[in-house]
Design a protein around this nucleic acid. Structure first.
Lengths: 334, 334
DNA sequence: TTGAAAGCGCTACCAG
DNA sequence: CTGGTAGCGCTTTCAA
């Protein structure tokens, strides 16, 4: 017997003097096997260091997938990897393993990377849509792969989704600034053409409208070019005549960029960011906070449900946000 | 023909009027196939929405693995996920996919989770060791699975590893504090019994020794209980008589904890942290910086090399650190 | 350049 | 309670 041979179920069966099927039964934990036989099988398995091959198990006709794919733009972003962490946790709880793939934030890469994941026969595909169109997943969905969109709904594809209550979150933040006496309130974001930003910007406008403050394009900086540093956008906004006395930053990155700029100012504008971050309390930054890990967890659970029970209506889940006031958002107008 | 049937290579062969092997040739190694045949096969594949089954491909005797497993302890830690991002990127470049699994920092969980990964027949196992002993991987390593330890060397297991130059990094930080006139310098960390902390603490001591400053246990807070908040450790350190005039924080978490505490002080001690973070520049925190993504990338590359060329000596890679001075580390003694 | 057949590791189906 | 047999989707011998 070669030492460099991975023991198979057959090897175990041979050593334990039973049929392969019996070994299978023991490891599948489902069927009745005589205790003595179980004992014999397990000891043989141990001796051979047998480890069931999940791949072979899945390959079987109608085999149940043991993996779930998560497709996203970039693992390096705290927001995204926290989602991933939530997904992983929820999957592990059900004995599923997570395959992660990133598109490096390129729209063209998305379908190609999804293909790789699907070639691995993942039981479900979770994705944070980057491209403008996910219709390429329609066939796969019909074949029984659960598809769940996270953070943004999929486009041209009927699929479950889990998103933040973006609009309400931004509205609440803006309303709070108004309540503190601000009327010249700016909204800054980049990128601007993604779903989340359009929602948040809409929420910002909602609040202004409700307060009878006319919309003013000068106070909206909807940049859509990730090569532009957030600081530059912030500086431009504040350099104009009649600058805003308060700023709503559309995301983490923009918030930190604004922060860098206004710290140099004698009379900094009020600031509320979207997305919480580690040192926000130290820096006294008010934010619209939410729980990305929770989003990931919910998405994974949705996918798991869908795996066992296909069909039915799709679910659109919304995860709440809440305003955390830490000082920067309560500054009155200068 | 049912619409709810995943097209197989056979289906494509039938439709294209060729043998399965020919289809295989087209999709695999681009072996010599007549252009016209290729055309026919591809068009049939497209029509049936055929997607090669990676699982089946891997199952084949001696089949080449297409996945790599990454095993780590902590879930929401930026440092670890940045490593993961580096790993993912390097793997994707070689057409491999990443399976992520976490042990939730429990030592017992490690082997069990490793088992899950190995049951998926990953071609390599990258791990950030958590448990005290990785000898359970020895058999698998002999079977040909590449094993690479990241951030800490594996214990009781001969394996490649990629770690930071922890000792030199901490030494440089401490030396810098000494150069700024400090003599009562503290080292704070939690957890303390992990490899990285032992190395960093040793570097801290090296620097003191070189400067002729006697070691003083009162200035070492080597806590080993993650339920203790970093703030508490920091407060205790500063509450003693003759408190330190400078602090080296062993990791990100401790650094931010210390920061929370010393901001309230009239004469804050100097501070240098280990690990960089997003807002460190705004907060003016000096740190020993390094590139976790680079570590991940190097580990993945090591694993890929090892996959194709087993045997040979193991490699111990060290990734450099560098001191970034932003203010907090240059404060003179009060 | 193409094809037939055997088999990877496992589990369902039907027996005994 | 246990065992034979067929087959999952693919790829590798060998032949044609």
């Amino acid at each position: 017997m070669s030492a460099l041979h991975r023991a198979t179920l057959q090897d175990v069966a041979r050593l334990a003097n039973v049929s392969p099927k019996t070994v299978s039964r023991v490891f599948a934990h489902r069927e009745q096997v005589a205790p003595a036989t179980v004992e014999r099988v397990l000891s043989a398995a141990k001796r051979l260091r047998f480890r069931p091959n999940t791949l072979a198990r899945t390959l079987r006709h109608g085999g149940v997938a043991t993996t779930v794919g998560l497709l996203m733009g970039d693992l390096g972003n705290p927001f995204y990897y926290t989602i991933a962490a939530g997904v992983e946790r929820a999957l592990a709880d059900r004995g599923l393993t997570l395959i992660v793939a990133t598109t490096d934030d390129s729209e063209e890469g998305e379908e190609r990377v999804a293909d790789t994941l699907l070639a691995q026969r993942v039981g479900a595909l979770l994705l944070i849509p980057v491209g403008p169109d996910q219709s390429y997943l329609e066939g796969e969905r019909q074949l029984g792969t659960a598809v769940v969109a996270i953070d943004r709904p999929a486009r041209n594809l009927v699929a479950d989704s889990v998103v933040l209550r973006n609009r309400e979150g931004a509205k609440e933040a803006t309303r709070s600034l108004i309540a503190h006496g601000h009327r010249r309130i700016a909204y800054l974001c980049n990128p601007a053409s993604v779903y989340t930003q359009m929602e948040r910007c809409a929420g910002y406008r909602d609040a202004l409208t409700s307060a009878g403050i006319p919309a003013d394009g000068r106070y909206e900086s909807l940049v859509d070019d990730m090569t532009v540093p957030a600081e530059e956008t912030a500086r431009a906004m504040l350099a104009q005549p009649d600058p805003p006395t308060a700023i709503v930053a559309g995301n983490n990155r923009m918030c930190i960029g604004v922060l860098r700029v206004i710290r140099e100012l004698a009379n900094p504008p009020a600031l509320i960011g979207f997305d919480d971050f580690d040192t926000a309390d130290i820096l006294g930054v008010s934010v619209v906070s939410h729980d990305p890990a929770e989003m990931g967890r919910r998405a994974a659970e949705l996918a798991i449900d869908r795996m066992s029970d296909l069909g039915g209506f799709t679910t659109q889940l919304e995860v709440p946000t809440h305003l955390v006031l830490r000082g920067s958002g309560e500054r009155p107008p200068a």
